Simulated assay, not measured.
Amino acid sequence: MVAPNGFYHVALKVPNVDDAVAFYRDTLDGDLIEHEHPDEGASGATAVEHAALMVGDKHLYVFDRAPYEAAGLVDELPYGPLHFGYTVDDVDAAVADLEDDVSFVMEPTVFGDLKVAFFEDPAGTRIELLEYLD
């Protein structure tokens, strides 16, 4: 059984990142951590606009497109919750431990300093396992 180290974040796909940032700042007193726009000509996982906020004691990420969606690793996703993220010490070990119990919708993939994998719960909610790489 995989025991995550902690619940890290919720990720949302939104039609307008600026509007989402304003809503979570103004309505829930969120603190903006970063807001990045894709470089001109960017493609793949880096061709997304996103912002990170602290809302209460958790991270909230808002994207115009999920990085794994922009990279072509999954089909286009609707607006709304993209996934819940849990940190683990070793994504590959967690995947090996879970592979008989769940279907992975994205096998372990490296994005910058993270290794991530996604599976779905019985209702289809995506769950991200993420490992910080050194």
Rank of each mutant, 00 (worst) to 15 (best):
M1N: 10
M1Y: 13
V2S: 02
V2A: 04
V2E: 06
V2T: 10
A3Y: 11
P4A: 11
P4Q: 10
N5V: 03
N5Q: 07
G6N: 15
G6E: 15
H9W: 10
A11I: 01
A11F: 02
K13C: 05
K13H: 04
V14K: 02
P15K: 04
P15W: 04
N16F: 12
V17C: 06
V17G: 06
D18Q: 07
D19A: 13
A20M: 13
V21Q: 09
A22D: 13
F23W: 14
F23M: 09
Y24T: 06
R25E: 14
D26T: 03
T27I: 06
L28I: 03
L28T: 04
D29W: 09
G30D: 03
G30A: 02
L32I: 13
I33R: 00
I33P: 02
E34L: 05
H37Q: 04
H37K: 04
P38E: 03
D39L: 13
D39M: 13
E40N: 12
G41S: 07
A42G: 06
S43V: 15
S43W: 15
G44T: 15
G44S: 11
A47R: 10
A47I: 14
E49N: 11
H50C: 13
H50N: 15
A52S: 13
A52E: 12
L53Y: 08
L53N: 07
V55A: 11
G56F: 08
G56S: 09
D57M: 10
K58G: 01
K58R: 00
K58H: 02
L60H: 04
Y61T: 05
V62Y: 03
R65I: 05
A66T: 12
P67I: 14
Y68R: 12
E69W: 12
A70Y: 08
A70K: 05
A71T: 12
G72V: 15
L73N: 00
V74C: 05
D75F: 02
L77G: 05
Y79Q: 02
Y79K: 00
P81H: 00
P81V: 01
L82H: 08
H83W: 11
H83D: 12
G85E: 01
G85P: 06
Y86F: 09
Y86S: 06
T87F: 05
V88K: 08
D89A: 13
V91K: 13
D92A: 12
D92F: 09
A93E: 00
A93V: 06
A93I: 05
A94V: 01
V95Y: 03
A96W: 01
L98N: 02
E99Y: 03
D100W: 05
D101P: 00
D101S: 02
D101R: 01
V102P: 04
V102A: 10
V102M: 10
V102H: 10
S103T: 02
F104Q: 06
F104E: 05
F104G: 05
V105Y: 06
M106E: 00
M106N: 01
E107D: 00
E107H: 02
P108F: 08
T109Q: 09
T109L: 04
V110W: 08
F111K: 12
F111I: 10
G112E: 03
L114H: 15
L114K: 15
K115W: 06
V116Q: 14
V116A: 12
A117E: 01
F118H: 09
F119C: 03
E120K: 02
A123D: 09
R126E: 14
I127R: 10
I127G: 12
E128Q: 15
E128Y: 14
L129V: 01
E131G: 11
Y132N: 15
L133V: 08
L133Y: 15
